[in-house]
Design a protein around this nucleic acid. Structure first.
Lengths: 254, 254
DNA sequence: CGAGGTGTTGAAAGTGCTCAAATGGCGTGG
DNA sequence: CCACGCCATTTGAGCACTTTCAACACCTCG
């Protein structure tokens, strides 16, 4: 079992680690609301972990000790049934908070979390998180914003599953990776494994693969491994966005 | 267009209305956290509306003026695309809050809301809601709880769509209407139209109808109109809950 | 080179959807 | 009270989409 990265990673001494944590926390929409002294107190209690792909961060229904956020890489949130089936709730990018709602769920995590790529995360004790919530009006306001936004994101996800077919969901996923100001063709890279994208979009890997080919046929998408070339954004928009209630661009909902 | 109910409804005078509103608010997990003077101030600004089936309460992307909660009946939250397709986000029962996240969404409602049955709702000005959030620690804590819980509910919904087939989703829906302490057969009533249940579960009315017949075959469910007799809960559990990560009973997630 | 993981492709089997038609309840107007 | 129309629900048939299972290609790593 990997518990830490090899020593070639730069940040290992507690000193450097502390200033790194403070600056990272300060840039975060939630922790950035804290006054400097709280921020320092928080950073002193925080841990930064570099962590390899596949590593489990916590499991569903485990008693929550810490609250996390993504420092680098991607984190998969998922739930598993007795049968071994798995549903991916979300795949989080840098800056996303997770495990924070355990506070309101009998201190149990409502999902499992796992590194989807090599990366790093920062964690803080749940007790101190709770303390900040109780003593800092701005902090709980910021958390309200985050939870509300995440609720809208989930609403949208559910809408997509209800109304869009697989090719359209894939198209929407790609569309959000694009720069919506670019007029001509543009090239993007898929952020993580195709298998994981498929799971996040609620389909089988095979279906994802076929969906991509269909997008090639229907919207002239070019696929070379994990590199996708979109010849014209508006074609893709016409293909996907008709069956979505959101106005394009809908980036803030990611 | 109906804007109010016939005068045979009991509560019409402002006096009685105020005390009714206060007692209703006080019983609510969110508003119940308020000190008496805030509660009174809130009630003075609140409106109670009785409202017929089908009536639109607000539309998606409309600028939010008020925050609502269900006093009686059922409220459908949904989103519509340009094509006229509709995705039901949720169907809310008595006590549920809605429109509250508009506060964190540029003051725009993230979904449309409509009465699913004749009923009533109470609403308060968004500005006062905001004021309460800013001045009352317990109030924003309570809202955090509510939003976190709603997030878990949405997680579960997404999991169901991903892992369960239509019959299992219907079975799960019925299971939650049951009394889980009863050993023998029990009879329950569907809370609202089958068409709406179908939409909430993300399927066509025809599929819902067929799913029910399949449940009859597979789990010995008895269907008489909107009355369902479950002969044995554990049979239904075996049928549905294997493809869900939650432990039964999972009522608190409704 | 071989092993294992990742992604693609083909064929067959479900699963749910669409369209169309029938059924049945319920309220209204005669 | 009955006929009618409306609406929700059911049923049937065919179709479209997605999954499943199996096989294969490709790449990386040892």
């Amino acid at each position: 079992m990997h518990t830490s990265m090899p020593s070639d990673t730069a940040h290992s001494g507690p000193e450097r680690s502390l200033s790194l944590i403070i600056s990272t926390l300060a840039a975060h929409p939630l922790f950035g609301t804290l006054p400097p002294e709280s921020l320092t107190a928080l950073a002193e209690r925080a841990q930064i972990n570099t962590s390899p792909k596949e590593q489990i961060i916590f499991l569903q229904d485990e008693t929550a000790e810490r609250v996390y956020f993504v420092k680098q890489g991607w984190v998969k949130l998922f739930r598993e049934t007795i049968d071994g089936s798995e549903a991916v709730i979300d795949v989080l990018s840098v800056g996303s908070l997770f495990g924070e709602t355990a506070q309101f769920n009998d201190k149990k995590y409502p999902y499992s979390a796992q590194m989807a790529e090599d990366g790093a995360y920062i964690s803080i004790p749940l007790s101190f998180f709770e303390h900040l919530l109780n003593t800092n009006q701005g902090f709980s306001q910021a958390l309200l914003h985050i939870l509300a936004k995440s609720g809208r994101h989930q609403d949208q996800e559910l809408e997509h599953r209800t109304l869009q077919n697989t090719a359209q969901r894939i198209g929407c996923f790609i569309l959000r990776l694009c720069n919506y100001n670019t007029k001509g063709p543009q090239t993007i890279n898929l952020p993580y494994d195709k298998t994981l994208i498929a799971a996040k979009l609620g389909m089988q890997p095979e279906t994802f693969s076929r969906g991509l080919s269909r997008l090639h046929i229907d919207t002239n998408l070019l696929i070379q491994g994990s590199t996708i070339t979109v010849s014209d954004i508006s074609v893709l928009r016409n293909y996907c966005c008709g069956l979505c209630s959101n106005a394009y661009p809908c980036k803030d909902l990611i």
